[in-house]
Simulated scan of single mutants.
Amino acid sequence: MANGGDDDLQERPIGELFGQLIDEGKAYAKAELGLAKATAEAKADAAKKPALLAGAALLFLIAGVVVLCMTLALALATLVGPLAGGLIAALVTFGIAGWLGLWAKKELGKLK
């Protein structure tokens, strides 16, 4: 009895100790997973409003570009006719889109 609780620890088989260690490890892993999940959910909830606002801003940006292209087409229509004005505005728009696409491809090539 001089050792107190040490006798109880020494009498337990090693398999039982490993089983207890595994059970405690699983409980710890579940707790960590729960914490990571809660953290991710909190961050996702915090990002919802800015994402919605950014999406709305993008829609208005697209609408603005459409209005600008239509204005260009209408302005050119008074000079060269409606069909030619529309075609010129479309070519300018496609040219800008092509240039931006090539620029994006060049930047993507830098990542490799």
Rank of each mutant, 00 (worst) to 15 (best):
residue 21 L to D: 02
residue 9 L to Y: 04
residue 98 G to R: 07
residue 63 A to E: 08
residue 58 L to E: 11
residue 33 L to N: 04
residue 74 L to R: 09
residue 45 D to M: 10
residue 42 A to H: 09
residue 83 L to D: 07
residue 95 G to S: 13
residue 24 E to V: 00
residue 14 I to K: 00
residue 67 V to G: 03
residue 24 E to H: 00
residue 109 G to A: 14
residue 3 N to W: 06
residue 30 K to L: 15
residue 22 I to T: 02
residue 16 E to W: 02
residue 86 G to S: 12
residue 50 P to T: 11
residue 75 A to F: 15
residue 110 K to T: 09
residue 52 L to Q: 14
residue 108 L to T: 10
residue 107 E to Y: 13
residue 10 Q to I: 05
residue 31 A to Y: 03
residue 92 V to K: 00
residue 104 A to L: 12
residue 49 K to L: 15
residue 28 Y to A: 07
residue 94 F to R: 03
residue 18 F to V: 06
residue 56 A to N: 07
residue 60 F to D: 07
residue 107 E to I: 09
residue 78 T to M: 06
residue 72 L to A: 10
residue 85 G to L: 05
residue 111 L to F: 10
residue 92 V to Q: 03
residue 85 G to W: 02
residue 66 V to W: 10
residue 58 L to K: 08
residue 27 A to G: 07
residue 23 D to T: 04
residue 102 L to V: 14
residue 96 I to F: 15
residue 77 A to P: 02
residue 23 D to N: 01
residue 20 Q to F: 02
residue 17 L to G: 02
residue 10 Q to T: 03
residue 70 M to P: 03
residue 91 L to M: 09
residue 90 A to W: 11
residue 87 L to C: 09
residue 93 T to N: 05
residue 12 R to D: 01
residue 13 P to M: 06
residue 98 G to Y: 12
residue 112 K to H: 12
residue 89 A to E: 00
residue 38 A to W: 01
residue 104 A to F: 13
residue 13 P to R: 03
residue 99 W to T: 14
residue 100 L to C: 13
residue 25 G to T: 05
residue 6 D to V: 07
residue 74 L to F: 13
residue 78 T to E: 10
residue 71 T to D: 08
residue 69 C to R: 01
residue 20 Q to G: 04
residue 49 K to E: 15
residue 35 L to P: 00
residue 63 A to F: 13
residue 105 K to V: 08
residue 54 A to F: 13
residue 41 E to L: 05
residue 96 I to V: 15
residue 43 K to V: 15
residue 62 I to V: 15
residue 63 A to N: 04
residue 98 G to Q: 11
residue 71 T to H: 11
residue 89 A to I: 00
residue 95 G to L: 10
residue 4 G to V: 08
residue 10 Q to Y: 02
residue 46 A to W: 08
residue 104 A to N: 08
residue 108 L to H: 09
residue 25 G to K: 01
residue 64 G to C: 05
residue 59 L to W: 14
residue 28 Y to V: 01
residue 88 I to C: 01
